Simulated scan of single mutants.
Amino acid sequence: MSATGKPVTGPFEKTKGWLDWCDSPTKPDFVLPPGSVDSHCHVFGPGAEFPYAPERKYTPCDAGKAQLFALRDYLGFARNVIVQATCHGADNRAMVDACLASGDRVRGVATVRRTVSDDELKQLHAGGVRGVRFNFVKRLVDFTPKDELMEIAGRIQKLGWHVVIYFEAVDLPELWDFFTALPTTVVVDHMGRPDVTKPVDGREFALFLKFMRDHSNVWSKVSCPERLSVAGPPALNDERNAYRDVVPFARRVVEEFPNRVLWGTDWPHPNLKDHMPDDGLLVDFIPHIATTAALRQKLLVDNPMRLYWPEEKGA
């Protein structure tokens, strides 16, 4: 049953379990520009076909490619970028399967280990992968030596891939030297998870802006307000204006670095504990942080196409 008590049917039907995603998303008021890309989302399993990693820190409910593609079409996106979820470890099969099933409408960001062979990297590239993710959030992954990560970065640079980094704002000073030494384009997940109870002009967020300002290879996803907000779930606010405490941070990044920003739903929202967001309301968050048509075109179309589909004419 859904949260409204109605049977869960149709393209969003799911196996009920922990980390249930919203089965009845709102139709967004905001109409996405043609060709928009959901640049940060995931697939979970289904576990019977793509088992979860034994070392995982959480076990999600299944959320496969059929549900992701149904949501994409419902919200009005044209393409997806699927980021490997930590619950699958370095087994990228579910993500690659979704890429291959998409008709070139999906790109992937993989997790790989030092032991990955060059042939395996080439197979991932053929499957749609264009980046690797390095996760530094301690509650989600075990520590990987930085020399191993730097070796991986050097190898994937030859394929034209980029590195996605996931970390928390408080850890940026410790990670600064490593991040600034990476030889590829670097994409930061969710603005480095700023503490939105602190001033947008405060020292902590200023360091993140300096990181982007001083390093032209650094991009940022201005996504996941539901993870960053402390204002409470949408039910406690005006739904169309949820997550307003995140707006000044995301808007600052979009306006200062319009050619190096991306946005994504983060569907199916792994490891959330307080509330499960309505993906339609997340789309309605976009015009609050990208306030002109030109900024929204860059954020949703031009930038992701340039990074993930550069071979297409006009990208």
Score class of each variant (00 low, 15 high):
M1A: 15
V8N: 08
F12H: 04
T15E: 06
W18Y: 09
D20S: 11
D20L: 04
D20P: 12
D20M: 04
D20A: 11
D23F: 05
F30C: 11
S36Q: 06
D38Y: 02
H42F: 03
G47Y: 07
F50T: 14
P51Q: 07
K57D: 09
K57F: 00
Y58D: 14
A66G: 00
A66F: 08
L68C: 07
R72Q: 13
F77E: 09
F77D: 12
V81T: 06
V81C: 10
I82K: 01
A85I: 07
C87M: 03
G89M: 02
A90K: 02
A98V: 00
A101H: 03
G103T: 00
V106A: 07
T111D: 05
V112M: 00
V112D: 04
R114I: 03
V116G: 07
V116S: 06
E120C: 06
A126W: 03
G127I: 00
G128Q: 05
R130H: 06
R130Q: 11
G131I: 02
R133G: 12
F136Y: 02
F136R: 01
F136M: 01
F136H: 06
V137P: 13
V141R: 06
F143W: 03
P145I: 03
D147C: 10
D147I: 08
E148C: 07
R155W: 04
I156C: 04
L159H: 08
L159A: 09
L159Y: 07
W161K: 00
W161I: 09
H162E: 08
V163H: 03
E168F: 01
V170Q: 06
D177C: 01
L182M: 05
P183M: 02
T184I: 09
H190C: 13
R193A: 14
P194M: 02
D195N: 12
T197A: 07
D201I: 04
F205S: 05
A206Q: 13
A206W: 05
F208M: 05
F211N: 14
H215P: 13
V218S: 10
S223A: 09
S229W: 00
A235N: 13
L236W: 05
R244P: 12
A250E: 13
V254C: 08
E256P: 14
W263S: 14
G264R: 01
H269M: 04
P270E: 13
N271H: 12
D279G: 13
D279H: 11
L282F: 04
V283I: 07
P287R: 10
T292D: 12
T292I: 05
L299Q: 11
L299F: 08
W309D: 15
W309E: 14
K313P: 00
